[in-house]
């Protein structure tokens, strides 16, 4: 019975995660204009929530489905062979094992991806900490290559090359560091990691496409943070200046490496120049969205219970596990 329960749990969770992910991808074009019109601080948070939701909602609602007290509250009473409270259950060892193996593969895949990325991150940290020189809140790296980045998840650090530092004015440097500090405070690398893991059930090219907006809005959120201190026009000018600097890059830098995100810069500069037109959400609106999300999650459990029973019936493998 334990095998059947775990197999059913894994099957329902994965099927629901996939179904919700596909649904969210299909609905996204309708919501996209409104989300991208928000202030990027809110837009990035809501976009992250949007792409995390299929994973979180599928996992939580499946957990609730298998939790007797919550399930009894959220699923209307109905009868099969008897009218006792029950959870849907696959009564086929083959299907149950299939669910377990599939679930294990997905969970191990996620853990593997996380550990591999963590390892790479640590390697880079150790290397740059060793080779760089600490300058207060950031590290300087002696290199002509014009590069600045924020590395790490929980306690990210800022690394800036001496080549970039030499080419920038004090104000440019201030803007760049403000931007990177915003990444640091918002823990954007961690946010992107979470989003990527939660979209892992989608095919890689599709996941890449749906997450590209999140990346651009995240950059915009940091641009806007820098603009609060230095002004939108100044930040736009610095972006353009850095762009020009890259055009005069040292020959040793790979040509193709510089040509991967031209729309990002254009979108970021344009966003800065119309910053005042962005909609800022009020606290109560964010709270209302949260309440709506919780209510939808609760409302999902009933249909999920009946839907699962219907699918299991259709597979000819139905049994019910009384509480």
């Amino acid at each position: 019975m334990m095998i059947n329960s775990v197999g059913t749990f894994a099957s329902i969770w994965l099927a629901l995660w996939l179904a919700l992910s596909v649904l969210f991808v299909l609905v996204y074009p309708l919501l996209r204009p409104a989300l991208l019109n928000l202030h990027p601080r809110h837009g990035s948070t809501l976009l992250l929530a949007y792409w995390v939701l299929p994973f979180a909602a599928s996992l939580l609602s499946t957990l609730i489905l298998f939790m007797p007290p919550a399930e009894t509250l959220l699923v209307e009473a109905h009868c099969h062979e008897d009218c006792a409270s029950h959870v849907p259950l696959i009564d086929s060892a083959v299907l149950a094992w299939f669910g377990i193996v599939l679930g294990a593969v997905v969970v191990l895949g996620l853990v593997w991806r996380f550990v591999a990325t963590l390892h790479r991150s640590r390697q880079l940290h150790a290397q740059f900490d060793f080779l760089g020189r600490r300058r207060g809140a950031w590290y300087e790296m002696e290199s002509d290559c014009p590069l600045v980045f924020t590395l790490g998840w929980w306690r990210p650090r800022i690394y800036l090359s001496s080549g970039l530092r030499a080419a920038c004015s004090e104000q440019d440097l201030d803007i760049i560091l403000q931007h990177e500090r915003a990444h640091q405070e918002r823990r954007d690398n961690l946010r992107l990691l979470v989003a990527r893991l939660c979209c892992a059930i989608l095919p890689a090219p599709l996941a890449q496409r749906v997450l590209s907006d999140l990346q651009v809005v995240t950059e915009q959120a940091c641009d806007f943070r820098a603009a609060e201190r230095c002004g939108e026009v100044a930040v736009a000018e610095t972006l353009l200046k850095i762009k020009r600097l890259l055009l005069q890059r040292p020959a040793s830098l790979p040509q193709d490496a510089m040509a991967f995100a031209e729309r990002d810069v254009e979108a970021r500069i344009k966003a800065l120049l119309v910053a005042s037109s962005r909609v800022t959400l009020q606290g109560w609106q964010l709270l209302a969205l949260l309440v709506l999300g919780v209510a939808l999650l609760g409302a999902m459990v009933g249909p999920l219970h009946h839907g699962s029973e219907w699918v299991i019936d259709a597979l000819g493998a139905h049994a019910t596990l009384p509480h």
Binding site: G152, M258, A261
Partner: peptide, 16 residues
């Protein structure tokens, strides 16, 4: 391949 590890100001300012 690094997008979840590091965020960069400059390299995204790519060729136009």
């Amino acid at each position: 391949k690094l997008e979840t590890i590091l965020s960069s100001f400059v390299t995204v300012a790519a060729d136009l």
